[in-house]
Design a binder for these strands. Structure first.
Lengths: 175, 175
DNA sequence: ATCACTATTATTAGGCA
DNA sequence: TTGCCTAATAATAGTGA
């Protein structure tokens, strides 16, 4: 019966190492459980060993994942940070895009009206490069433009007619 | 000196809970260190507490991250999957938004022209609710509309002038 | 390889400065 | 608070079945 003080060093003997492992593993998990229960704190333990096929986890896989996640969130770690940064980056892009879309869809009549009209005008101007007066594509563009303008003016006339109580106000006629 | 057996339950008293926590934390980490040294296995512990600003980790942040990574690789865990799913979801949204933006910015003149004009027309129609002919806001809208149309027609006139070699073609004049 | 046992060592609750 | 102290409790190394 030699129960001497244990020297803190790797146990060379295979079987006794495994025995010690099993005993101490149980102890460790018990301690973890105790500190959790007594202090109500978040704690976890992971133990791998060549002896167990799956890593020993306490308090539970889910609980441990929470612990790990929080741990990773709190500490600045390469892999996680990359993930977070990527997510933030993507999120920022999404937010930006969403804002843009929201802005596009915003139901402020005047803003939409002005913006759309200016964009329209700008596009119309872009269709006319300086000195490009013999470009066949431009004639087509102009025709399309004329058609659209006619449609627009017609609708505008109809609206004015409604607004002003039936008087038929001619605004214009394109081409 | 009543050092009775501890009941395994949450310690309500704040200060004694913290004291117990600190003591047991040291013990837990020591145990973890021992099982690691004695058995040469991969083990780790994470402890959070409201008391420490950073989570207590053993064997080390790097070692713990290795343990965690392996753990995560080996086990299929909901939260991790959720994170992946979230990323995929965000990625999908971004892709969608990007496509939309790309479409918006697409430099196809005719498509832009048509789209913008139709949107413009549609907005113009939306500014006129049925029977709203005595709504003061509408008059303002109409004035704005008229101004924009004037601008547009002027630019159109200028362009036609350029295209057709100087002949001044009047298209119309709003309101 | 487990178990049960137990001598020892280790941990720690509570008291006190 | 914090650290030390010490009794009480718990963990466990080594053993033998």
């Amino acid at each position: 019966m030699t129960r001497r003080k244990v020297k803190l060093a790797f146990i060379v003997n295979n079987s006794s190492r495994k025995t010690t492992y099993k005993k101490r593993k149980r102890g460790l998990l018990k301690k973890a459980h105790e500190i959790f229960t007594l202090c109500g704190i978040n704690a976890g333990a992971i133990i791998y060993s060549p002896y167990d096929p799956t890593p020993e986890v306490w308090p539970s896989v889910e609980g441990m994942n929470q612990v790990i996640t929080t741990f990773r969130n709190l500490t600045e770690i390469d892999r996680h940070n990359n993930m977070v940064n990527q997510q933030e980056f993507v999120q920022q892009r999404i937010t930006k895009a969403d804002k843009l879309l929201l802005k596009k869809k915003k139901d402020n009549r005047e803003v939409n009206l002005t913006e759309d009209m200016y964009r329209f005008l700008q596009i119309g101007q872009l269709t006319i490069p300086a000195g490009g007066h013999n470009n066949p594509a431009l004639a087509k563009d102009l025709n399309d433009l004329g058609y659209l303008v006619d449609q627009y003016l017609n609708s505008l006339n109809r609206r004015i007619q409604i607004l002003e109580g039936g008087s038929d106000v001619e605004i214009g006629e394109s081409l």
